[in-house]
Amino acid sequence: MRRFITLLFILLATACTTKKSTSQNKTDTLSKFSIKKRKTDSLIAMGDRPDSEQEGNTFKEVLSEKLTSYNKIQNIDTLVVDEKDSMRVHCKFYCLHDSSLIVPKRYMWGGDKSRDFITHNFAVKIILITNRDTVLTKIFVKKDFTPELYDAIRKYATFIDFKFEGYNTKLKNKLLFESSISIPLTDVGVPVYLAIDKKGKYEILDQYAIKH
């Protein structure tokens, strides 16, 4: 009988110890979770997020893509036929490697915020040949689009890409090109458009002119 009571006492003591240990582990886990959550909330409050919380590409991926773009040359070569006229378009989109664009450190949302980011401007050279006449040869840079840009975009942004959108009949039969002028490494920017007629006359348009 005494052996039975002693055994029962040991089992009860072991159960209490196990329960206490489980409870302590649970408390420790909740405490660590709470600290991690407060840290994440603090980063978000400062306008930052850890890479695991980022939507889309991480800052390192965006930076790598930007650095790679310096050595890429994008060529567009297409032919448009409009009744009796044929228009041959040659475009070359490239980096100027001028190191003249300084992006303030406040825009470095996931990188080194202790210094500004020095990068390059881009340009696009367009040659338009209508029938057998070269009617336009021009290099377009950001300043050509200045009237359509906000102050911060004008100071810190550059061409991100350049695309041929086709022959637009709504714009009185003009060749339409689209680009984005954005602050490097950010999503701060605006779309801009370039319309060229068959005689080589061009105009800069914003997104509202295209929609209407």
Rank of each mutant, 00 (worst) to 15 (best):
K26Q: 08
T27G: 04
T27C: 09
D28K: 13
L30Y: 04
L30G: 02
L30K: 12
S31R: 13
S31V: 14
K32S: 15
S34H: 10
S34A: 12
I35A: 07
K36W: 08
K37G: 01
K37C: 07
R38D: 11
R38L: 14
K39E: 13
S42P: 00
L43P: 00
L43W: 05
I44M: 02
A45S: 11
A45C: 00
M46A: 10
G47F: 12
G47E: 06
D48K: 14
D48H: 09
D48P: 00
D48I: 11
R49E: 05
R49H: 07
P50E: 02
P50I: 04
D51G: 03
D51Y: 04
S52C: 06
S52T: 14
E55G: 12
E55S: 05
G56N: 00
G56V: 07
G56W: 07
N57M: 10
F59V: 10
F59S: 12
E61T: 14
E61R: 09
V62P: 00
V62L: 15
L63V: 09
L67K: 04
L67H: 02
T68C: 00
T68S: 00
S69G: 00
S69C: 13
S69W: 02
K72Y: 00
K72G: 05
I73L: 04
I73R: 10
I73Y: 02
Q74Y: 09
D77L: 11
T78A: 05
T78L: 09
L79R: 07
L79K: 15
V80I: 14
V81K: 15
V81C: 03
